[in-house]
Design a protein around this nucleic acid. Structure first.
Lengths: 112, 112
DNA sequence: TTGACATGCAGGTAAATGCCTGCCTATATG
DNA sequence: CATATAGGCAGGCATTTACCTGCATGTCAA
């Protein structure tokens, strides 16, 4: 019923949560500005399916496209990736060392 | 039909693609070793639903848990996040500067 | 103009996801 | 022991997702 508006982070992570879409990003990294047809080549799925995947990447703002004649050219936008890093990776980088000590401390029952 | 075995990256990104699960990670960062009950508090969903979310985080190896008596204690594991960063963020960080130039070059039709 | 080519659009289906309710088990504690 | 507390397990339902097929549109080039 109540439709929640998806946040940016949702869109980006969801977009990345599929191997086909990550493959598409890799292809664009290898050579930016590919057409839709080039991107879909050898993907082992119908063009229309790949198009949907590209749509997801565009919705997440990871890819932007523009037309040139009858072609659609695609470009990577790395900004959302960096934002994800700042908010969801960097923050937790320090956590590793604490972990073992925390586990011990808590398990030994000094509690909370 | 043919069930594909999900890769690590799939599990991690999928786990992160939900605001409830990200909230859980934040709660664990704020204080590691929380019990299930503590984690679920105030989450605006049934405990069982939150438990499923925690299951997704565990499947992605972002959280590991162990029992103490009748309680289940949860701990962050930041390693998968770092791996994601190495493979899927760092790689694309350099792409930004190229982008505008690429777009121009391609649009002006020197083609591929 | 006309045919070939690149892409867009509209459903349709099977599986996965996210939430629920109901009930069971195990551990603590009076 | 009896009860409360922490958590586990099973099944059900609505929505979303990831594919597909079929057809329409727009652009280029002979």
């Amino acid at each position: 019923m109540t439709r929640r508006e998806p946040k940016d982070a949702d869109l980006v992570f969801k977009a990345l949560a599929d191997p086909t879409r990550r493959e598409l990003l890799d292809r664009l990294f290898e050579r930016n500005g590919r057409t839709l047809g080039e991107l879909c080549e050898g993907l082992d799925m119908a063009r229309q399916s790949a198009t949907q995947h590209i749509g997801v990447l565009e919705a997440a703002n990871l890819v932007s496209a523009r037309k040139r004649g009858r072609e659609k050219l695609h470009f990577i936008n790395p900004v959302p990736l960096h934002e994800i890093y700042e908010r969801w990776v960097r923050k937790f980088e320090g956590a590793r060392l604490e972990t073992l000590a925390d586990i011990k401390r808590v398990l030994e029952g000094d509690g909370r």
